[in-house]
C-alpha cells in the first residue's frame, strides 16, 4: 500500500507505538534496568520506528511505552503538557492518567531540562514506603563521559564521571540533597537521542572540580 494517508486521519490519529509490543518493551526494559543498576553508564536504546510527537523524543517514548499504564499517574513539564498530540500519544498507547500535581506522579516526563523543577517537588516516598516516589525521565541532548559530576555507590566498581548536556548546574546540588534523604528521594533516567543513563537515589554524587 502507498504511504498516502488521508490528511484528516493523519492529523487526528496518534503516532504508532511499538511495532512488536511484547519484545520491544522487553528490550527497552532491559536497557532501563541495566541503566539503573549501572548508574552513569550509558546504555544504547534503539527506539526502532517510534516517531512520537515533539518534544517527546523516541527514547523517552520507548521508556514511557515500557513502564506507563493506568496504574501510573504521569506529570508532564510545561512544553509537553501544552502539546495535545503528546498527551494523546501517551493516553492512547499507555492509558496513563496525566496529573498536574508532581507529588502525586509515579513518573515525570521532562523535555526542557533547562527549566526543570527541583527534584524535591516530586513524590519522595516515605521512610516506610520509599518506593512510593517519582521516577523522572529527563530528555537531554547528550550523555557523555564529560566531567560535570563523579558518581559512586551501588552498581559501580569504580567512580564514573559523566556530563549531561542541557542540565542546569543548579540541579546537581539538589540531586546531592536527594541522596542525603536516602532511602527517600527520586530516581532519574536521562534519555538522549539513542540511549539512556540512570541515576538512582542510591548513587553518591560529587561535583568535579575545575
Amino acid at each position: 500500500m502507498p504511504a498516502q494517508v488521508e490528511p484528516a486521519f493523519a492529523s487526528s490519529a496518534p503516532a504508532t507505538g511499538f511495532a512488536d509490543p511484547v519484545h520491544d518493551a522487553q528490550r527497552a526494559f532491559r536497557a532501563i534496568m541495566t541503566a539503573m543498576s549501572r548508574p552513569g553508564h550509558r546504555q544504547d536504546l534503539d527506539a526502532g520506528a517510534l516517531r512520537p510527537p515533539a518534544p517527546l523524543t523516541p527514547v523517552a517514548a520507548a521508556v514511557a511505552l515500557t513502564l506507563f499504564d493506568y496504574d501510573t499517574p504521569v506529570w508532564l513539564d510545561q512544553a509537553l503538557a501544552d502539546t495535545t498530540p503528546v498527551r494523546r500519544f501517551l493516553s492512547f498507547h499507555t492509558g496513563c492518567p496525566i496529573t498536574t500535581d508532581p507529588s502525586e506522579a509515579a513518573f515525570a516526563l521532562i523535555s526542557d531540562p533547562a527549566r526543570m523543577s527541583s527534584p524535591a517537588d516530586f513524590a519522595q516516598g516515605s521512610l516506610e514506603y520509599p518506593d512510593r516516589s517519582t521516577t523522572l525521565i529527563v530528555m537531554v541532548g547528550e550523555i557523555s563521559a564529560g566531567r560535570q559530576v563523579s558518581l559512586s555507590g551501588p552498581g559501580l566498581n569504580a567512580p564514573v564521571s559523566i556530563g549531561i548536556a542541557d542540565i542546569p548546574s543548579a540541579i546537581w546540588p539538589q540531586l546531592i540533597a536527594n541522596r542525603a534523604h536516602f532511602p527517600c528521594g527520586v530516581d532519574l533516567l536521562f534519555a538522549d537521542r539513542g540511549g539512556l543513563a540512570g541515576l538512582p537515589r542510591s548513587t553518591r554524587i560529587s561535583l568535579e572540580r575545575g
Binding site: P21, V22, A25, Q26, F29, I32, M33, M36, S37, T66, L67, F68, D69, D71, T72, A106, P130, D131, S133, T135, P154, G155, F182, P183, D187, P200, R201, S202
Partner: peptide, 22 residues
C-alpha cells in the same frame, strides 16, 4: 504485559533502594 510492567516497575525501585523489599 500489564503484569510484566508492574513487576518491572517494582524491580527498578528495588534496584534504586538496594535491600528494601518492594
Amino acid at each position: 504485559e500489564q503484569t510484566k510492567r508492574m513487576i518491572r516497575r517494582a524491580i527498578l525501585k528495588a534496584i534504586a533502594v538496594p535491600g528494601y523489599q518492594v
